[in-house]
Structures are given as C-alpha cells and as structure tokens.
Design a protein around this nucleic acid. Sequence first.
DNA 1: TTTTTTTTGAAATAAATATTCCAAAATTGA
DNA 2: TCAATTTTGGAATATTTATTTCAAAAAAAA
Lengths: 277, 277
Amino acid sequence: MTAVEALQPPRAYSQLKPWLQDHYRSLPKRLQNVAVFALHNPEVIALNTVAVISAQAQVTPSTMVRFAKSIGYEGFTDMQSVFQESMRHVPQPYSQRLTELAPPSESEETVLHQFSQAARASITRLEEQADGHAIRAASSQIAAARTIYLAGQGRAEPVVTYLHYTFVKLGMQTVVLDGMASAMADKTRMIQPDELLLAISFSPYTANTRELVDICLKAGVKVVALTDSTLSPIAQVDDLHLEVLEQEVSGFRGLSATMCLALCLAVEAGKRRAENQ
Amino acid sequence: MTAVEALQPPRAYSQLKPWLQDHYRSLPKRLQNVAVFALHNPEVIALNTVAVISAQAQVTPSTMVRFAKSIGYEGFTDMQSVFQESMRHVPQPYSQRLTELAPPSESEETVLHQFSQAARASITRLEEQADGHAIRAASSQIAAARTIYLAGQGRAEPVVTYLHYTFVKLGMQTVVLDGMASAMADKTRMIQPDELLLAISFSPYTANTRELVDICLKAGVKVVALTDSTLSPIAQVDDLHLEVLEQEVSGFRGLSATMCLALCLAVEAGKRRAENQ
DNA sequence: TTTTTTTTGAAATAAATATTCCAAAATTGA
DNA sequence: TCAATTTTGGAATATTTATTTCAAAAAAAA
C-alpha cells in the first residue's frame, strides 16, 4: 500500500472526480498519468480489461492495479465497478443509431465524421458542465483588467492566438507572453496588480505555464486559468479556473469546444467592459 | 448449434434488435426469454459477467452461452462486445446533477449556449457539405510534400498555429510564414516545386495571403487553400480549396468547425504519409 | 404409451483476467 | 555524490469467468 491508505474511496463516480483532485498531488508520476487518463476516459475503464486499458493509458497492468489500490479500492475490479456504475442507466443514445447506419464507405468522410462527432460531443459537454459562476467571474476579472496577458504553449497556443485576436478586435489591450522560458518569466514579473494573466494549459502539462501562474499569484496579480481538467497543475491554485475537455479520436484532441469557450469568454468580457464605461 | 445457423449475426446493436425480432419465433422457449431480457436490459449484458446476467435473466450460464451461439456469435464474449459497443461514446452524463445546481437563467449561460449552438451547427454543416474528393486530394498533396508552408493572418492565424503544432507532432516538416508582408513574400519565393503552400484565409480577406498564393502558382508550387467561401480571392484560382463556414453570433465568428476540419486534414495527411512509407 | 429428438442444467474444463511478488530503475534525502 | 526509499515493469500465480460436456428432463413424433 503506497500513498493514501485506510481512507475509504468514493463509491460513486461523481465523488471520485473531486476526490482525485484532492489526492492527485500526493501520487507518484505514473499514477498521476493514470489518474488523468481515468478522468478523461471513464468509459474505457468501465468497458475493458486491465490489459487493454493499461495499454491505452501507456502503463503496465501492475500500475493499473496499483493505482486502484493506492486510492483505496480493494483492487482494479473494485474500482472498475464504480466506473461501470456511472454508465448504468444512461438513456440509450439516439445519435449513434444514425452513426451506425451511415455507410462505412469512404474512409475520408468517416474520418471527418469521427472528428465532427467528437467535436459536437465536446461542445455539448462543455455546455452542460460549464460552471456559470466561473465564467461570469472570469469575464468580470478580465473586463476589469487594464491589460490582459496571455500564456499557453503547445496545443494551447492556438487558443492564445485566437484570444489575442479577439480581445484586440474588442479594443482590449492584450499582450502575448512568448519566447524563451526565462524571457517569459521576466515579462511576467513586470505584470502589475491591476492587470491579469489568462493562462491556458492542457495535458500533458508543461511546467512552464505553471511557473508563470505562480509568479503572478505571489505578486498578487489576478489569474484566470483555462485547462482540460482540474488535475492540471495550474488549476490547483485556488484562483479562477475554467474547464473544457475535448473528446479524443484515435489519440488526437481537437480544439472545437475550447475555441467555443474562448470566444464566449472574450465576448462576455467585452460586454462587461462596455457596460462599465 | 440449434436454430439459426451459418447466418452472420449483426455487429451493431441497432441492427441486432430488428434481427432478433425476426428470428425470435424459431428459438426454443428459454432462449426466447433470454432474447426478451437482452432487448430490455442491454446495459446489463454490456457490463456484467455471464453468471450475474444469467441469474438476472433467470437462466443458467450455459443457456446464456447457448443463446449467443444460437444467434450466430462465437460465444457469449463475442456477443457482449456488440452490447458494449452500443455503450461506447455515449455522452458521459458525469456529475451533471451537481453541475446543474449552479444557478441557471443568467445571461452568461445563454451566451455560452448561443455560441455552442452556432458551433455545433457549423460543424454539422461542414460534415454535410464537405467535399470528400477535395479533402482526399488535399491530404494526398500534403502527404506528398517535402515541406509544408503555412500562411494565414488575423482570424486564420490560430488555425495556422494549430496545424503547425499537429503536423510537427505527426513528424511532418512544417514552416509558418509570418512576419512583414515583404519578408513573407521573399520566403514564399524560395518554396520549391516539391513543397506545398497551405493557405488559410477568411473574410474580410487580406490581400497579403492572396499574393503568396499567386507567387506559388506562378512558380508551379502546389497550393491547398482553406477558406470560408468560394468568393475568397484565394479560392478563385483553380487549385485545391476546402470550404468551411462558421455561423455568426452577434457579429462574432468562432473557429470550432474550422479547427475540426484542420485536424481532420492533418490526420488524414499523416495517415497517407505513413502509408506511403 | 413408447420412442426419438430436442432442450436444459449442473458439473468439469479451458481460457482469460486480475493480482502478487520481486528485482531493477528511478527518485529522494543526507 | 552516495545511500535509503520509493516506484515501476515483468513474470509467476491465483482467481475469476467463459465454455464444453454429458446426463436428465421435456417435448414431439410414432
């Protein structure tokens, strides 16, 4: 038994999520990967064998079992039952009827179809799960800031670019933090308390963006974070964070839902700023 | 093997239902019971073991296995996979109850709702109208190119950033054309015939990207264009162009459908390149 | 009713799956 | 840097789960 012990683990999937967020930090690296995977792919856990799941999660079966135990379950089987429970009694989806009837003819069209499906599902989920309070609070903060600083790398960079474009169009002063890590940190240290950092970060998380967030928090600068999971290191801080999770297709994650949220946030902030003037 | 034999059974749950209805009468009594049970409790079949299921269905495990075989499957496991398939990719209901406790109504949620609607509609339209031939041809060209050059400004820039990220991840050499207009033109003139320009441009069209396309066409360099309308100046040329139109909400256009198409194109190209090697 | 065929359930077997154990690797602390 | 501790992957094991077999029961045919 490794980390968390004698703690009885959540028996309901809905409790598992916040529970994992709390204990995430105390897990070893590989087990953290598994935690992220589990929250991103609950249906995979529910429907497959350890061998299949651990292959998808890029770990060994032992690690999968160890993960289940380390968060307090008797074993993998025990944990799996919780994930299965979350799938029971789901209203039979009508959407997939159409999908399955669609002729599996041309592979190209099917690829587009798959990505479209995933994008739409992600947007729907965003809509259902989005925290209205958080969006409201975030856009207020952004509206109040004298200057908005944007940070994000890798898959988050297109979001930064888009937000920059949109904010500028809305007449809001915006600076993109880019370049070398050290230069970014230096620029970040210059941010004033009446300004704001909008940080975007997705799994696999880079340490860099987290560092910028830390600098700002220490300096008393407001931070708004946009991530794909509350397990993200930049969501740990108890500041404002918004969550958007893209459904994955054969290992690729799109940006459709993220872009939707980004636009929403920018427009909302623009509206508030206009009202305040 | 009892009743129905040598008939290949449905691989999709949606087809299994009518299929069972047809063959129901020719099954022995106990197996009919199982058939009824299966149609009424698909999620039980998907998530449990033969022992548990057969107990619920009030038959013995053997009968369960026999049922699967009698309708043509290799065994219970084989049949179960079809039921499981029907549960995959269901929009995860997650902890929606908890989320929904967040106070509704407020205009922010409506804004997100509007943008979500627009994004979904755009994606659906993309899916319906997309030209399969064009996508296929474009991805082939991209796959064949030694180096991919990306051009796009303003609202198209996030797409460029995303494609750059994705292509690099797929191991394809990619260069982003940015900087001053004159410098971009100079760089463009250096592109070789076995390379390719992927130009992205949306309304309101900037003259700049059009210029780069012209330079390439004159030099015999392949061009793939991604635009929001055939009215776009870069679609005028009779080269390959893909169209994606984002629905507008109070003057703002998102990028959800565009990102979806971009990812599709990149993945498709990556797949083709892998095949050619 | 008797005989033949089909259907069924319980136990035996085969297959797969999860779990444990241990040595190697990585990480942490001094 | 080196020692102590933790973490990890792979192989061995134990357990569960599916499948097959076979004799008894039920149904159908004579």
